[in-house]
Write a protein that binds this DNA or RNA. Structure first.
Lengths: 206, 206
DNA sequence: CGCAAATCTGAACGCCGTCAAGATGATCTT
DNA sequence: AAGATCATCTTGACGGCGTTCAGATTTGCG
C-alpha cells in the first residue's frame, strides 16, 4: 500500500498534518467510518502509529480537522447552489437539494461532521459566522415578501436545517426506494418531501 | 462447596439474553455509547467475555436487540402523546414534542436505534406495520379537512419524521440555548420550530 | 441412568488508542 | 563550520477491544 519502497520518504515527512487528514478522508471514502482507525491512517500515510501524536492531541482532534474540511466543503456546495439561479423559490429549493446531495455523496464525511459536533454539544461556530447556516438564513430572508422578524428568521432557518439533516440521514433507507421511483428520481423525491413540510407544519400551529 | 460463597450465580444464568440487553441499556444510560463494549456488558451481567456469543451472533446483533426495545418504547411514547388530547392540531403538535423528548431523554438509546438502522440501510419494518411511523401518518390523515392522496400522506409523514429526527439530533446543541430561554423553555422552542417548518416549505414549491 | 445439547469459562489472536524513550534530521547560535 | 537545540519520527510497550476455540459444567431428553 505504501510507496515507501520506491522512494523512501525522508525521515521528516514535510507536511504530515495535511497528509494525515488526506489519508483519513481516503479511508473514509474507500472503507467507511468503521475502518477509520488512527493506525490505519498512519499506515496509509506511511508513518508509524505514534507519528500522528506530534500533530494531533488524539484521534478525536484529527477527526475534528477532517470535519472542519467537511463543513468548508458543504459551505462551498451551498454557495454554488445558491448562485445557480435568480428565481427566489427555485433558489431555496436548490439549496435544500444541494444539502442533502452533499450528505448523500459524502456519507462518511457527513457522519464525522455531526459526530464531532455531538461530542462538543455544538455545531461549529463558523456556521453562524458567514457559513452554511447563514446561507440558508439569508436565502430565506431575501425571498420573504414581507420582512421577517429576527426570531422568525432564525426559527425558520433551524426548521429547514433540521428537515434537511433529517432527510439527509434517511435518504438512503430502503423504505424510500419505491417513492423515489414513483416520483421519477431522487431529486424529485427530495423536492416533494420539502414541499410537504408545510403540510405537516400547519397542524403544529396552536 | 456451594455453601457460603458470596452469591454464586448458578453456572447457567437462566435468562442471559435478557440480562445482557438490560446490562447494555444500563451502561448506555450511565456511561454513554462510547463505553458500550461487549466485554463491559458481559462484566455488568457477571459473565465471561465469551458468554454473549451463545446468545448473539456478534456485538451488532446485541445492539439490534437493544434498538428494538427502543423502537417499541418510542412507539409507546407516541401512543401516549396521541391519546393525550382530542384537539386535532394539538394532537399533532404533541406527537412531535413527544418524539423529540424521547430522543432527549434517551440520547444513547436513540443513537443506537439509528446506528443500527443505518447499518442496514433501512428503518425497522415494524415502524410501517402499526408502529410509530403509522401513528404520525394516521394522525395526519385524521386531521386533514380534505382527504389526502395516499402519496401526499406518505410524503408529509416522511417530512414530519425527518424534521422530528433532525430536531432531535440538534436539540442539545449549545447554539439553541439562547432561543430556548427567549421562548420560555424547551417545549416552547420545539413547538416554535415545528410551526416554522411551513415558512421554509413554501419556498420549496415549484 | 446415560448421553447429547446447551451453556459458560479461560486462554489466545490480532486489532485498537495511547504513551514513554530513544533515534534522526533541521534549524539556530556562535 | 561546529555544536546545541528542537521538532519530528520510530520502536516497543500497556491495557482494552471483538472474536474464536477447546474444554468444563449443567440441563434435558431418551
Amino acid at each position: 500500500m505504501t510507496i515507501a519502497t520506491v522512494e523512501p520518504r525522508p525521515y521528516h515527512h514535510g507536511d504530515l498534518s495535511r497528509a494525515l487528514i488526506g489519508a483519513a478522508r481516503k479511508i473514509l471514502e474507500t472503507d467507511g467510518p468503521a475502518a477509520l482507525s488512527l493506525r490505519a491512517v498512519a499506515r496509509e500515510a506511511g508513518v508509524s502509529p505514534a507519528a500522528p501524536y506530534h500533530h494531533f492531541k488524539d484521534k478525536a482532534q484529527l477527526l475534528e480537522a477532517v470535519a472542519h474540511e467537511g463543513w468548508v466543503e458543504l459551505d462551498a456546495a451551498l454557495s454554488k447552489a445558491r448562485a445557480s439561479t435568480r428565481d427566489p423559490s427555485e433558489r431555496m429549493s436548490n439549496l435544500g437539494v444541494a444539502y442533502v446531495c452533499f450528505a448523500r455523496d459524502n456519507p462518511a464525511l457527513y457522519r464525522v461532521m455531526y459526530d464531532c459536533s455531538r461530542d462538543k454539544d455544538a455545531l461549529p461556530d463558523q456556521l453562524k459566522e458567514g457559513g452554511a447556516y447563514c446561507q440558508v438564513r439569508d436565502t430565506l430572508a431575501e425571498q420573504s415578501k414581507t420582512p421577517l422578524a429576527e426570531i422568525d428568521l432564525e426559527l425558520a432557518t433551524i426548521a429547514g436545517w433540521c428537515a434537511g439533516h433529517g432527510l439527509a440521514e434517511m435518504i438512503g433507507f430502503k423504505q424510500f426506494a419505491h417513492l423515489k421511483e414513483v416520483l421519477g428520481g431522487e431529486e424529485a423525491f427530495l423536492r416533494a418531501v420539502f414541499q410537504h413540510l408545510g403540510m405537516f407544519a400547519k397542524f403544529a400551529e396552536d
